[in-house]
Design a protein around this nucleic acid. Structure first.
Lengths: 335, 335
DNA sequence: ATGAAAGCGCTAACAG
DNA sequence: CTGTTAGCGCTTTCAT
């Protein structure tokens, strides 16, 4: 059954192509009588506009690319869900692209190898450097998310990682934890790690403590199990700490499980704070205190900037910071 | 900067449009010398093919829609990740559409309101009925996932829910749990619930027990918290059980937390089994024994059937069953 | 208020 | 091996 075209409808209704097009798109300049007749023909034939053709004619695809490391990571799945909702408000659909933290995939995102597929891309790189991004970025509207420093010309939205890391560390200190460690993997997101480390150290210094290099626990593998392994190794090496600020929630959950598996208590012996506020933090044992970025604001800000770019704004890159909150749960109850 | 077109490249290279097109698509029938010259022009101009135009000309979009309830649900996020990988093998991209369990959204998926946007749709409905699907399904290739009975003409892939539910229940029985309850929400996926209930009851009967209606714990809200609430309510009502087979992993995790919050132990007092084997099951406390569908096989089978449909296969709907495994973890250690 | 004609950028016969 | 000629289905001036 070959698809029914505008022409077919026009023939049936006995009007021109243009008129049918006007009716379909709810344009003015069509008499009620004609409109009704055309609508009847549309329904009868079951006409559905061909998006591809419309796109070619208008140059607008109605699609945005959302590129980030991994849809399977809870934080990104949740980010995607919010972004879907937000995009729908502007009548846009999202095409998801996973980079898997691979530089070549991140480069491919910018290479814009499929012109005309999307109207713009919202991109959270983790390993590309600013200079490379500037180099590769074509003229497709681009909004960056996350901690990689954007080039001068590109819009960017993120939360203040230094401040949030400071908040997390201060919280641990306030709850009575004296020696707070920082758990992260350097393999990924090194600029992010750096920022959070800065905030962490600032909190310690303000509390009159000197950051102890021993308390920087580096993971070998950037996975949940890797987090557990690193914590156990630190404990076995006699590193003493009673507070742990983790790079993300999954690492925190891995760490809590490991801590409890060696007979220590959370938060009794070690208080733990995560980052992202993924759904699972409510159901881990114990539930996890975490930094909750305002994902709604993140998405709406990113999309708003994207829409301006699409409409033609071509100025210098804007940098927006969105809020975060410390969500206190059982992993840091007062001791 | 107006996009560079095939024509521009042809002009620069001094050849015809067609030749450039051949070079770009790596078609034969181009002399090495010409190919090189054209390639140089392509690079110089930074030519990128316009996908929309290509699509209109070929009628192939290179895109598949993947429609399911909710990207935020871990199982679907993981399914999507696998599906992305599988689709890439066929050079297809995926457009995700969330139905949020809403019938109107499920209907919209089938209504094919955007002809020419995708070449086919892979769809896991939960609330639509077979007859409605048959009615709404246009002529876009369609492959169904999950437990809703497909119409005669549509392909379908799923795991044997009755057998898997029986396996899960038998496992609990084998581990020494005498009174096994079944936890689910009837609001959603009622056909799925029915099948699992059938398997659950079959296992009980084979073990010489009569299913006790009291042991069917119905949730009011189909959420993780709803699962916990339902279990606590049952316990408060004096329902006695020492085994719990849950509709899905998140419900199981909610149930385990609730059980432990009232002072009972898992698996000591109550053994728990989930469904889906989401990543989190390894990190819950205790880790969760669960039914692990072979998601890889699910995706590859679905995509293979989709490719046949796209290539023109127009026969009767095929029904494929993929494997599952019982993944034993700490929530059902021998008691 | 409606119609005719000219593309959007690409692919696909069909020639040469 | 390469070039020419039509479309793909829709939107959009520009007339009427």
């Amino acid at each position: 059954m070959p698809a029914v075209r505008l022409q077919d409808v026009a023939n049936l209704a006995g009007v021109s192509l243009k008129t049918v097009s006007n009716v379909v798109r709810n344009k003015p300049h069509v008499s009620p009588a004609t409109r009704k007749r055309v609508q009847k023909a549309v329904d009868e034939l079951g006409y559905v506009p061909n998006m591809t053709a419309r796109r070619l004619a208008t140059g607008r695809t109605g699609m945005l690319e959302l590129a980030f490391p991994d849809i399977q990571a809870p934080y990104y799945a949740e980010l995607a869900a919010h972004m879907f909702d937000e995009a729908k408000k502007y009548d846009y659909r999202l095409l998801i692209e996973q980079t898997r933290n691979l530089p070549e995939n991140e480069r491919a995102v910018l290479a814009d190898r499929e012109q005309g597929l999307v109207d713009g891309v919202i991109f959270e790189p983790v390993s590309l450097e600013t200079s490379q991004i500037a180099l590769l970025k074509g003229d497709l509207p681009l909004v960056m998310l996350g901690e990689v420093e954007p080039p001068m010309t590109v819009d960017h939205v993120a939360i203040d990682n230094i401040a949030a890391a400071k908040t997390a560390t201060e919280h641990l200190l306030k709850r009575g934890h004296k020696r707070v460690a920082f758990l992260a993997s350097e393999e990924v997101n090194s600029s992010t790690v750096k920022r959070r480390l800065t905030g962490y150290e600032a909190a310690l210094r303000e509390a009159g403590m000197d950051p102890d290099p021993q308390l920087y626990i580096a993971m070998e593998k950037p996975t949940t199990d890797g987090a557990g392994d690193a914590v156990v190794a630190a404990l076995n090496h006699g590193v003493e700490f009673d507070g742990l600020f983790c790079y993300n929630d999954m690492f925190a959950i891995g760490a809590m499980n490991a801590i409890q598996s060696v007979g220590l208590q959370v938060p009794g012996d070690i208080g733990v704070v995560g980052w992202n506020d993924i759904t699972m933090t409510k159901y881990s044992m114990p539930s996890l205190t975490t930094i909750a970025p305002d994902v709604d604001a993140l998405c709406s800000t990113a999309l708003a900037m994207m829409m301006e770019r699409i409409k033609g704004y071509d100025g210098i890159g804007r940098h927006r910071t969105v809020d975060y909150q410390l969500r206190e749960r059982d992993s840091t109850k007062v001791i």
